[in-house]
Amino acid sequence: MFPHEEKLIRERLKREPNELEWAMLEVMWSEHASYKSSRPWLKLLPTDNEHVVLGPGEDA
């Protein structure tokens, strides 16, 4: 998690997250789970043609 994201979390909660909340946020905001850096690249891929089995969305 980046420092600006940690700051945003504190601002939204208006308090310091507890240990469990930090752990959950780390998992939910991890690169693997959120695709933060790959999202722009994924948008370049085709979403509808004969080779696409399942387009973007849930469980894609």
Rank of each mutant, 00 (worst) to 15 (best):
R15E: 04
I9Y: 02
D48I: 02
P46T: 05
E19T: 14
W29H: 09
K7L: 14
M24L: 15
E50C: 01
L44C: 08
E58C: 04
L42F: 15
Y35I: 09
E58F: 07
S37L: 15
R12T: 03
I9C: 04
L44H: 11
M1K: 02
K7E: 14
P40Y: 09
G55N: 05
S38M: 14
R10P: 00
R39E: 02
H51L: 04
M24S: 10
A33Q: 12
L25D: 01
E5R: 06
P46K: 04
E26R: 15
G57T: 03
I9P: 00
E11H: 07
G57F: 00
E6N: 09
S38G: 07
A60V: 04
L8V: 07
G57D: 01
L13V: 08
Y35W: 15
H32T: 10
E31L: 05
L54F: 03
V53A: 05
V52K: 01
P46M: 05
F2Q: 13
E21N: 09
K36D: 05
L54W: 03
P3I: 05
S38C: 13
I9T: 03
S37H: 12
G55Y: 00
D48S: 12
A60I: 01
K43Q: 13
L44E: 10
H4D: 15
K14S: 11
E50L: 01
P46R: 06
H51N: 05
R15C: 11
R12W: 03
A60H: 03
H4T: 15
M28F: 10
L44W: 10
V52C: 02
A60F: 04
I9K: 01
D48C: 05
K14Q: 15
F2R: 12
M28V: 11
L44T: 15
Y35H: 13
S34R: 10
E31G: 08
D48M: 03
V52H: 00
R39T: 14
G57K: 02
R39W: 10
M24V: 12
P17Q: 02
V27H: 13
R12N: 05
E6V: 09
P46Y: 04
L8Y: 12
S38R: 11
L20N: 12
A33V: 14
A60T: 06
E58H: 06
P46F: 01
H32W: 10
Y35N: 07
L20Q: 14
A23L: 13
E19H: 07
K43R: 15
E6D: 10
D59S: 03
D59F: 09
V27Q: 12
D59E: 08
E58Y: 06
P56H: 07
F2G: 01
I9E: 00
H51A: 04
P46V: 04
W29E: 07
K14M: 10
K43P: 01
W22S: 02
E26I: 11
H51F: 12
E26S: 13
N49C: 06
